[in-house]
Amino acid sequence: MSSTVSPMADVKVLETAADLSALREEWEELASRCPEHRLSQRYRWAAVAWRTVAAPRGRRLHILTLRSGGRLVGVWALVSHLDKGLRVVRQLGAESSEYTEPLVEPGPHQGEWFERLWKAVRPLGDLLFMPHVRSDSPLARLTGRFCLRCFVDNELNAPQILRAAYPDWEAYLATVTTSHRSNLRRKRRRLSDLGKVTFRREVTPVDPATIDAILAHKQAWIERRGYHNEWLAQREYRDFLCAMTSDPQAPGSLCLFLLCVDDTPVAFQIDAVDDRRIEGLIGCQDPAWGRYSTGELLLQDSLQWAFQHNRDIDFRIGDESYKSAWARLDCLTFNCLVGLSLRGMAVVWLRKIAKGLQTLRFRLGLGRLRHVLRRR
C-alpha cells in the first residue's frame, strides 16, 4: 500500500515496557500496511524478545516511533548495553540470526522516513551494531550513503527461492538435479519400509521439552562439524523459542514442522512464516534416524508446503551445501558497525584501518612470506 500522508514526520523515543505494550495495536496495523514485512519486524517478536532476552540481560529499551499526521508510519525497537565503557545499540530481538531492519510504511516517502529513524539513533549511544543487513534493503542503501561512519564485515549470502518464478511445485522440482531427486526418493522409500511417513505443521502449543531436544540435536550437529555458534546454547534464546511457539495460533508466532514415522517425530524444523515467505530458523533430525536423511526429507516437504501456500523461501544466512542444492538466488548480507559518537567513530576507523592493513599485507604477499620464514 502506498502512503498518502505528509513526508513530515515526528520521531519519538519510548523507553519503558509499558510503552512497548501500548504500541501493540498500532504496530500490528502498520505491519498490515507493509506487505513485505517479516515476522521479526512485528510486535510479538519484539515483545517476546524484550521479556525473554533483552530484559534478563539488563538491556536498556529504546523504541523509535515515527508518526506522520498522527499515524504511526515507522517503528524501530532498539536496546542498548555497555561494552568496555561504550554504549552499544542494536535492534531488539533474539540476538541470534534475524535481519536488522526497521518497519517503515512503503510509499514515496519511505526513504526519507528511514533516514529520520537512522539519524534519531545517534543520541542513544556510541555505536550502533546492525547484524545481518540485507543488501536489498533501504537500510543497506543508508550505510552506503554514510559509509564514513560505517564498518562493514562478515559478508554472507542468504540463499532463497522466489515462488513467482515457477508455475507450481513440479516445475520448480524439475530444476533440482536428477541425482538429488533420485537420492531423496530412495531414502523416502527406505524410511517408508519402517512405518507410515507423515509431514505436518504443529498447531498446538509446543512442549518446551521438544525445544530442548531440537536445540540439543542442533548443538551436537554443530560440534561434530567443528562449527561455532554464539547464541544457540544460551538460555535466553531457548526461552525465546519456547515463548514464540507456545501459541501457534497467535499472530506473529513461530511454527514447527515435523516429519514423523508412525507418529514418532524423526526430524524438526522451526520456521518463521509470514504472509509472504517462510524463513528457516533451526532444522535438525533425531540422530537415531540420521542414516535416512530425515532432515533433508523434512526440508523437501516444507518447501513443497511453501509452494502450495504461495510463499517465497528464505534459507537465511550461510552457504551450507544443503541450501545450494535447493536455492536458485542469493541475497548478500553483512554486519555493520556505525559510529554514533566521537568515541564510537574512533572504534569504527580503527577497525577500518586494521582491515585495510590486513588486506594490503596479503595483497603484497607478506602473509605467505611470514609463513615461509617461520618454516625456515
Rank of each mutant, 00 (worst) to 15 (best):
L298H: 02
L298M: 05
L298R: 10
L298K: 05
L298F: 07
L299T: 02
L299E: 06
L299N: 02
L299Y: 03
L299C: 06
L299S: 01
Q300M: 14
D301G: 09
D301A: 10
D301S: 13
D301C: 11
D301H: 10
D301R: 10
D301L: 10
D301Q: 13
D301N: 10
D301I: 09
S302N: 09
S302V: 09
S302H: 11
L303S: 03
L303Y: 02
L303G: 01
L303E: 02
L303P: 03
Q304R: 00
Q304H: 09
Q304D: 10
Q304V: 10
Q304T: 07
W305D: 06
A306T: 00
A306S: 05
A306Y: 06
A306D: 01
F307W: 04
F307Y: 05
F307C: 07
F307R: 01
F307D: 11
F307V: 12
F307H: 03
Q308I: 10
Q308T: 09
Q308W: 08
Q308S: 12
H309G: 04
H309N: 08
H309I: 12
H309W: 12
H309V: 11
H309K: 07
N310L: 14
N310G: 11
N310W: 13
N310F: 12
R311T: 00
R311Y: 12
R311K: 08
R311E: 13
D312A: 00
D312I: 01
D312R: 03
D312V: 06
I313M: 07
I313L: 09
I313A: 01
D314R: 05
D314N: 12
D314W: 11
D314H: 14
D314E: 12
D314P: 09
D314Y: 11
D314Q: 11
F315A: 05
F315N: 00
F315Y: 11
F315C: 04
R316A: 14
R316Y: 13
R316Q: 14
R316K: 14
I317Q: 07
I317N: 05
I317H: 04
I317C: 07
G318M: 04
G318Q: 00
G318N: 00
G318E: 05
G318D: 04
G318W: 00
D319A: 10
E320L: 13
E320R: 15
E320Y: 14
E320N: 11
S321G: 13
S321Q: 14
S321T: 14
S321P: 11
Y322C: 06
Y322I: 05
Y322V: 04
K323D: 02
K323A: 01
K323W: 03
K323G: 05
K323M: 02
K323I: 01
K323Y: 01
K323V: 00
K323T: 00
S324A: 15
S324F: 15
S324Y: 15
S324R: 15
S324H: 14
S324I: 13
S324D: 15
A325Y: 07
A325E: 15
A325R: 03
A325W: 02
W326S: 02
W326I: 10
W326M: 08
W326C: 03
W326Y: 07
A327P: 02
A327N: 06
A327R: 03
A327Y: 00
R328C: 01
R328S: 04
R328D: 02
R328E: 09
R328M: 03
